[in-house]
């Protein structure tokens, strides 16, 4: 019998026996005694019982603990950027939906700007001081832990927290073209995503104040008495900047409320006696309150 004939007959012979001989591609396709069950498999067989993993050994448990501990420590450090997806991706039940193409992948991620704020939750609330704001950019400004010459030059500006956006914004700006830079930053608002990373927006600046020492806090309060809030500890220059901003017509950014209006929403809970807040009823309740 030729090989071709043998293959041709397989369907007929197999039918009566509930199984089929091996398909022709297999090496023993010519062996009629062999029955192969080629029913399609269930996509997810109901009888599938995955074997249970044995319990963790103390070593594994400890190293898992170390991992979690490290993760938590990093998540509380200023370099961490929070996970934020857009509302659609968040509302789907399955976070690992198949995604096709880069555009679709990028679409999942949320953009944080004034347009995407949830109006019901954006109003500062007491409990916000306990919750980390969603940080979209690592806070590089305060960190003194890097060394510039280990980074490429086009990132030096970014390192100092003085990235002005745009393709060349990472280069460090020499001297004092500070005003110009500020203007440029405002002009850059035209860039579609340029404003999704305003750090001082929302309850985020609670966080920054929290880590400061007592002396820094005093200095800040003193500074506030003299001439408004400043983050960089350079009162004169920043004052200039902010005057500029007040003059500029397009500036409706309410982060500038910081320099002292009648109603200072963001600093509402922060100035003064937050240490003395009673933990008896306040915190207990707010922890339950979700």
């Amino acid at each position: 019998m030729s090989g071709r004939g043998g293959r041709g007959g397989r369907g007929g012979r197999g039918g009566g026996r509930g199984g089929k001989p091996a398909p022709p591609g297999m090496p023993f396709g010519d062996d009629p005694s062999l029955i192969v069950n080629d029913e399609p498999q269930d996509t997810y067989p109901k009888s599938y019982k995955p074997p249970a993993a044995p319990p963790l050994t103390p070593l594994e448990e400890r190293s898992g603990g170390c991992f979690v501990q490290f993760r938590l420590a990093y998540h509380n450090s200023p370099m961490y950027t929070h996970r934020h997806l857009n509302a659609d991706a968040l509302s789907t039940k399955d976070p690992v939906m198949p995604r096709y193409g880069q555009a679709q992948i990028n679409e999942r991620f949320g953009i944080k700007n004034r347009a995407t704020v949830d109006p019901f939750l954006a109003v500062p609330m007491y409990s916000h001081q306990f919750v980390d704001d969603t940080r979209t950019l690592p806070a590089l400004r305060g960190a003194r832990l890097y060394r510039k010459d280990l980074f490429p030059q086009e990132l030096w500006g970014t390192l100092g927290g003085k990235d002005t956006g745009g393709p060349k914004g990472g280069f460090e700006v020499e001297g004092k073209p500070k005003l110009g830079r500020k203007r440029k930053a405002l002009a850059d608002d035209d860039y579609p995503f340029a404003d999704d990373d305003d750090e001082a927006f929302g309850p985020g600046h609670y966080k920054r104040r929290e880590n400061e020492t007592e002396e820094e806090r005093k200095a800040r309060i003193d500074g506030a008495g003299k001439g408004g809030e400043n983050e960089e500890g350079e009162p004169g220059e920043v004052d200039l900047d902010e005057e500029e901003e007040e003059l500029s017509a397009e500036d409706d950014d309410y982060e500038d409320d910081e320099d002292g209006g009648d109603y200072d929403a963001e600093a509402y809970f922060d100035d003064g006696e937050d240490e003395d807040y009673g933990e008896e009823e306040g915190i207990g309740e707010s922890a339950m309150d979700f």
Partner: peptide
């Protein structure tokens, strides 16, 4: 950086911040 901006649809500033963290 430019190519990364295209690929990730982040803005250059964000990409640079990300790169800083990655280098660090």
């Amino acid at each position: 950086v430019g190519k990364l901006v295209q690929q990730s649809s982040l803005n250059p500033k964000q990409v640079r911040h990300g790169l800083v963290v990655l280098i660090q």
